[in-house]
């Protein structure tokens, strides 16, 4: 399947003096799950707004399911499902009534809409609360109901804008499971997230976006690989002991770097044993010794110069 379900080319959009999108471009193949990852105001939500016909780009072009988002907006809307903090449910209605409402709006007859609502209540584990108004829902429930409402009819492309922001770990995992099922069904998914772990868990491919441009893309593993493999970290809280340890380790590892109370060296075969042996002979008791691959966080930091993991300001405004 090499058909491109989302094609974005040189998309630009400004709000007054603020440039939200500065030539963002990427494509998503049919059946792919792609994560859009970026720091505050990077342009993630603006990108989603343009692709879901809520916002008109200043220049550039974008096609979703083969349709132009500006000239063929009506066809795009027939091809997409959207879940995001900006697109919500009817607070007054119950969860089940919302599912019926959207089913009816999307062309299901009364009976089909009711059957579909029951099916989704079951699938999203909303049984206990399906009869209560959405305004009484907790964050996790609301997000589940929201996603359920987007899936009332099958659409080839699903947009998820920060689907698990603010959720507890259990609800987050439940949502991840749903996204994995959707991928298994062949749905193309573009998701934005402020959680690197989430991109790591769900996405086939990650697009790092910063200042309205895509600054890097690849599989999570490829991106981590760019930072050059595994590192061994030694944490020593006592400054004098740390100095001793650093001196001893540097003899064998001239590339050693210091970062607060952590000493870091590139790790290969046998590195850990060598590090532990040298610490022992120097008489230093380390508080922690670990060997790990770089996190996406670090990739992020090295590529954008700013940390991710803070709520997207542009996305929070509704």
């Amino acid at each position: 399947m090499s058909e491109q379900m989302i094609q974005v080319h040189e998309l630009r959009r400004s709000f007054g003096a603020t440039t939200a999108l500065d030539g963002v471009g990427f494509s998503v193949a049919a059946g792919e799950v792609v994560g859009l990852l970026g720091p505050n105001g990077a342009g993630k939500t603006t990108t989603i707004h343009c692709l879901t016909t809520l916002l008109r780009p200043d220049s550039g072009s974008a096609r979703v399911a083969g349709f132009d988002v500006v000239d063929q907006a009506a066809q795009v809307r027939r091809s997409i499902a959207v879940t995001g903090q900006f697109a919500a449910l009817d607070e007054m209605l119950t969860g089940r009534e919302n599912l019926v409402l959207f089913g009816r709006l999307l062309g299901l007859d009364r009976r089909a809409a009711a059957a579909r609502a029951d099916e989704l209540v079951e699938r999203f584990d909303l049984g206990e609360v399906a009869g209560k108004p959405v305004r009484t829902y907790s964050g996790g429930l609301r997000r589940r109901a929201d996603l359920a409402a987007s899936l009332v009819v099958d659409r080839p492309v699903l947009f998820l804008d920060e689907p698990t922001t603010g959720l507890d770990p259990r609800s987050r995992r439940a949502l991840w499971e749903v996204v994995r099922q959707l991928r298994a069904d062949g749905t193309t998914v573009l998701l934005t997230t402020q959680y690197l772990e989430e991109a790591d868990q769900l996405a086939d491919r990650v697009l790092l976006i910063d200042h309205g441009r895509v600054v890097a893309e690849g599989t999570p593993d490829e991106l981590k690989g760019r930072l050059g493999g595994t590192v061994c970290e030694v944490r020593v809280e006592d400054p004098r002991a740390r100095e001793t340890a650093a001196a001893r380790l540097r003899e064998a590892f001239p590339d050693l770097t210091e970062d607060d109370d952590v000493l870091r060296v590139a790790a290969g075969a046998g590195t850990l044993t060598e590090v532990v042996r040298r610490l022992e002979s120097a008489g230093v008791e380390a508080d922690d010794v670990t060997v790990r691959r770089p996190t996406l966080d670090e990739v992020f930091l090295s590529l954008t110069g700013s940390a991710a993991g803070v709520p997207d300001v542009a996305g929070a405004g509704r």
């Binding site: 879901t52 809307r77 959207v82 900006f86 919500a88 607070e91 709006l105 999307l106 409402a149 509704r318």
Partner: peptide
């Protein structure tokens, strides 16, 4: 109220 809750935005993404 419907605009603030995001309901209108959802309508806007639907074929209506």
């Amino acid at each position: 109220g419907d605009a603030r809750s995001g309901l209108i935005s959802r309508y806007r993404t639907l074929p209506m």
